[in-house]
């Protein structure tokens, strides 16, 4: 029993990392007042760029950087459209998602089935020997360790730095920024692009550390999961982290049970995180949107 728990929790961290990066990126964008459904697209281009550059250069770290750049560039399209052309955020996000889907299918065909160096699990000395926790947390790939830092770092940055304050103000009261001579549009655009870069890192992690492969549409809705996760987490980075592991655990449960001879329909479990999110939304009701950044609430009405 206890090794089942360890298996599921380890799997939760393994499978939740890519979603977490994307959801942290979405948190950035939404705290600045922009919903980006194109996160799915940013993850996809990040996954392809990460895998392709890793294959071409032989360095998964270069791949990770390329994934961030690609994800950020795709998000730039969303930023330009919604911030400067004032187009509808939902429709533009979906369009950007299709753009990512198309671009990766156009340029990705050559990398299907091709081998590339990826991130392998590295056990952290000492920490990985801690019973239970060591196995669950400290026998992963390096990008996962980065993700442990990313969520607290983002939390601190949003809360305690000048940049974080400006970003939050762009999402709460853009007028105030105007009065003080800042350009809220610029701040929002930057937040969307940075968010896309994080989603790209998530995608690159998915391709180079989780799946060790590239195939068309490999993110399979993880970007959309990330978007709903941010609402589930009420726009708080640390809750995003917890929520990502919840999704990861649901992904890991069926294979873990199957390995023990208990056969379970994977799809019943796959629906679980969505149902949990829906249940939480139903219970919290209006309070969910009360926690939302002020400017974001306008998008949702």
């Amino acid at each position: 029993m206890s090794d089942l728990v360890v298996d599921v929790l380890t799997g939760a961290v393994r499978g939740g990392t890519a979603i977490m990066f994307a959801a942290l990126g979405e948190t950035l964008a939404e705290r600045a007042g922009v919903v980006n459904l194109g996160t799915e697209g940013s993850m996809l281009v990040g996954a392809l760029a990460g895998y392709a550059i890793a294959a071409e250069t032989g360095s998964p770290w270069a791949g990770l950087a390329a994934g961030a750049v690609a994800g950020g560039l795709l998000a730039l399209v969303h930023a330009v459209m919604v911030v400067w052309r004032r187009s509808d955020q939902f429709a533009t996000g979906l369009t950007v998602m299709f753009l990512g889907l198309g671009l990766t299918s156009l340029f990705g065909a050559a990398y299907v089935g091709r081998a590339a160096p990826g991130f392998d699990p590295v056990a952290v000395p000492l920490l990985s020997d801690v019973p239970l926790l060591g196995e669950i947390l400290f026998q992963h790939d390096p990008v996962t360790y980065l993700s442990f830092l990313a969520a607290p770092l983002l939390w601190w940055w949003l809360r305690s730095t000048r940049g974080g304050l400006l970003l939050r103000t762009a999402g709460e009261r853009a007028d105030v920024l105007h009065v003080h001579g800042y350009r809220p549009g610029l701040i929002r655009g930057a937040a969307v692009v940075a968010g896309g870069a994080l989603a790209g890192i998530g995608g690159a992690q998915l391709a180079t550390a989780y799946a060790h492969a590239w195939f068309e549409g490999m993110t399979a809705g993880r970007g959309f999961i990330a978007v709903s996760l941010v609402i589930f987490a009420a726009w708080r980075p640390l809750w995003v982290m917890a929520g990502s592991y919840l999704f990861g655990a649901a992904l890991a449960l069926a294979p873990a049970l199957q390995a023990r001879g208990i056969s379970l329909n994977q799809f019943a479990l796959d629906a679980l995180p969505f149902l949990i999110t829906l249940a939480i939304l139903a219970i919290l009701g209006r309070r969910t949107l009360r926690a939302a950044p002020e400017e974001l609430r306008r998008v949702f009405t």
Binding site: F224, Q266, F267, D270, F274, L275, G285, T288
Partner: peptide
């Protein structure tokens, strides 16, 4: 009834629907 935004819930339900269909056709 409880004021949850429909854009969010309809989006989430897309994935539940897909899982419902996959569940049925796999078993």
């Amino acid at each position: 009834t409880v004021g949850v935004n429909e854009a969010v819930t309809t989006l989430l339900l897309n994935y539940v629907a897909l899982d419902v269909m996959l569940y049925l056709i796999y078993e």
